[in-house]
Design a binder for these strands. Structure first.
Lengths: 125, 125
DNA sequence: TTTTAAACTATACTTTGGTATAGTACTTAC
DNA sequence: GTAAGTACTATACCAAAGTATAGTTTAAAA
């Protein structure tokens, strides 16, 4: 019996490379925005309300100042977070989720729902 | 003017640690399933139809055998992919998205839609 | 008899992500 | 004048993720 003649379903839906790649790229973009250990905690923390640097730091156990600073800059570069400097003494900086940042809420919801179900499933094995 | 008196919106919606953490964990679970450079290409490739090892390898430019093998085992451990060995000569192994794996489709769709919009937005800056 | 193909595994290496620790500038409170 | 609070930055280090390259088994094809 030749390999090529196997009765698998493998050949049923032919498709091109380009199709796949084009379909993957934007998904990757979205995942990148949420990637890493700290972006999600930061975004979710800001969904609950505007925060100052040290407030976020306190709310996220384990994060270092360096990572918080770096990730906030990342999120700002992606227009998801706005940084406002208050000219007080000492200087206070407030971080806000932009309107655009809030468009992530349904995305996070879908991920959460799937995640909850997945957790259930993996537990009961 | 004291820091504590600033008229920011930062104090409007108080919430607890526990709330945040519990809300983050399942999202992370979901992201983990899709994490890394190769899981998404593999899943999407299998959405288009069942495939054999070397077929997937050919469809995903740049992936090494080692990574493909490792990621497939990961996906199998998460019940997303089924591995079927055909007792032919030479041995042929077919990979299938399980029904459960297909539940990822809407998740990927949401990510893709957000990703497309995000790509647009970042481009036009 | 060497090559080809299937589906891998093994070893070593590099790159990226994240951590640990310390230090900066400014000012107010003790 | 020393400590403490604001929001950071710098340096060095470490571990996980990914890459490169090669080797394994079986058997058919050239």
């Amino acid at each position: 019996m030749e390999t090529e003649e196997l009765e698998t379903a493998a050949k049923k839906t032919p498709h091109t490379h380009g199709e796949c790649t084009k379909s993957i790229l934007p998904v990757r973009d979205a995942l990148e925005v949420l990637s890493g250990k700290w972006k999600l905690p930061i975004i979710i923390s800001l969904i609950f309300g505007n925060k100052r640097f040290s407030q976020i730091a306190k709310e996220i156990p384990g994060i270092t100042d360096k990572m918080l600073s770096k990730e906030l800059r990342d999120l700002e570069a992606n227009c998801l977070v706005k940084r406002t400097v208050y000219d007080s003494i000492p200087v206070v900086v407030e971080y806000t989720l932009t309107d655009y940042g809030h468009t992530l809420k349904p995305v996070i919801e879908v991920l959460r729902n799937w995640g909850v179900a997945h957790r259930e499933r993996i537990m009961h094995l």
